[in-house]
Design a protein around this nucleic acid. Structure first.
Length: 260
DNA sequence: AAAGAGCGCAACCGCATACTC
DNA sequence: GGAGTATGCGGTTGCGCTCTT
């Protein structure tokens, strides 16, 4: 039997709308079913991913806040690359988003360290970090990797941060962060970074129920409206995008599938 | 102004685990 | 309890936008 080729690549607005419609209709569980019934010609997996990472109404938009970034680093030092677990502690953020943030963070950290490592450079907390035999991009298990042969596995962050925190080193998580922020400040005098240097107070509850910490001034609101956008018009388009005719035809489509 | 490099992000892949029959 | 299927997770890739030279 010749199986029709599944659509791949970026989602169109129409596909998004359709998916949202059918998820609202059938719930966000039976992805293969939704994929079929919607006629999206995508795999259930792809539908789920799109929903979870982009269309879910509780998702926050935009960059991670400084509090969230601190939290990610703290949790990563505790749990390593358990992205979904970390994401659960950051309402409205996805594992994918956090993964991407961490990758970017490590990339910057590495670049900074490289810069510092050059003969002309002098002091800095990151240099002390590497001089402590905790190379950022080549922890013990990946030490054979060439510099520049970057792998996402080579986060190094876990060992470094754990080691430093555990050993009560002078170089704290904040120092690393400050280093990066300051270096960015040097490049572009961006005032947005000012608050990043202010350490938030956290108070959080772990999955096991024990208290870890969480941001005291957490701004997240679970009743956040769907797709908060700068552009109100754009937002409305997403909320009420299709004509009622369009919805009706999807409704028919779903019904037809169910009734055969 | 154009080309190349770097970066951010969305999406895919493969494997592991959970669920259903 | 085992097989088949669905879902979840972590790692990786590719594309488009922005920045730099």
């Amino acid at each position: 039997m010749v199986q029709e080729e599944m659509r791949r690549g970026p989602w169109t607005e129409q596909e998004d709308l359709k998916l949202v419609y059918f998820v609202n209709m059938f719930g966000d569980r039976r992805w293969d079913f939704i994929a079929k019934v919607s006629g999206l010609n995508r795999t259930g997996k792809s539908c789920r991913l799109r929903w979870v990472n982009y269309l879910h109404p509780d998702l926050k938009r935009g960059k991670l806040t400084s509090q969230e970034e601190h939290l990610v680093m703290e949790l990563h030092s505790k749990w390593g690359n358990r992205w979904s677990r970390i994401a659960r502690k950051l309402p409205g953020r996805t594992d994918n988003e956090i993964k991407n943030f961490w990758r970017t963070f490590m990339r910057k950290k590495k670049a900074l360290e490289k810069k510092r490592a050059s003969p002309s450079s002098s002091s800095g907390s990151l240099s002390s970090l590497s001089s402590n035999n905790h190379a950022v991009d080549a922890d013990d298990s990946h030490a054979s990797k060439e510099v520049g042969e970057e792998s996402f596995y080579d986060t190094g962050g876990y060992d470094d941060i754990m080691g430093l925190i555990g050993a009560g080193e002078e170089c704290s998580l904040d120092d690393i962060w400050k280093d990066i922020v300051l270096s960015e400040d040097n490049n572009n005098n961006n005032n947005n970074n000012i608050n990043i240097l202010q350490q938030p107070v956290y108070e959080l509850h772990s999955e096991e129920g024990s208290k870890i910490y969480s941001p005291s001034s957490w701004e997240y609101n679970c009743s956040h409206p769907l797709w908060v956008m700068d552009d109100e018009e754009e937002s409305n388009k997403m909320l009420f995008p299709a004509s009622s005719d369009q919805y009706y035809s999807w409704y028919e489509q779903g019904n037809a599938f169910l009734t055969g």
